[in-house]
Amino acid sequence: MTLNGSSGGLRGDLGHVADMIGPKSRVLDIGCGDGALLAHLAAEKQVDGRGIELSQAGVNACVRHGLSVIQGDADRDLADYPSAAFDYAVLSQTLQATRNPRLVVEELVRIGKRAIVSFPNFGHWRIRAHLSLRGRMPMTHLLAIPWYETPNIHLCTIRDFVALCDEAGIRIERSVTLDGAGRPFSFNPTGHLANLFAELGVFMLSRR
């Protein structure tokens, strides 16, 4: 359930996700795809990692590479885990494909002492322009699937996400916003400029 992004090593946002994770911690990666982040964290940070992945091909690839991964999805399976079972619960570019994003984010900060969430920013100027000028559903390199086929049913802007965290009583501990190549912007990650120019947001959260 991951989206297309920059290639070569870790996908754009995953490098920034990895930077937020402390060594030798316990990590649950939800929507772990082929396990690139988990493999990176195991090799570079001696992390005790687990994964949940929807696609059977992804799960099989992970287990073949010695990663601990089960088939499942964020909407259904997070309830099984005890509270604070992990140091970090990671959801990278998957939130927009969940049925109940608010519940999922709340579950993330329950299961993980910290949650790290990344998602494509629907407030990016190119997406705004696409819709307002062409009058068609926006398609970008991060959101490359036409509206009638896309699994991305709950898209949001960075400011929408910040508002959700506020409403749900979730603290934003760290945040970084990225351009399409995965390069961080220097301006306030939760402000209007980031909301207009960033293509991706990466947020580290915890329960207030």
Binding site: R50, C62, I70, Q71, G72, D80, P82
Partner: peptide, 18 residues
């Protein structure tokens, strides 16, 4: 079983083979 193992925070992989 996977649910129970997760609830116990055990280290578990699960694959269903087609």
């Amino acid at each position: 079983l996977v649910q129970a193992l997760n609830a116990a925070a055990a280290n578990v992989s699960f694959v269903e083979i087609e």
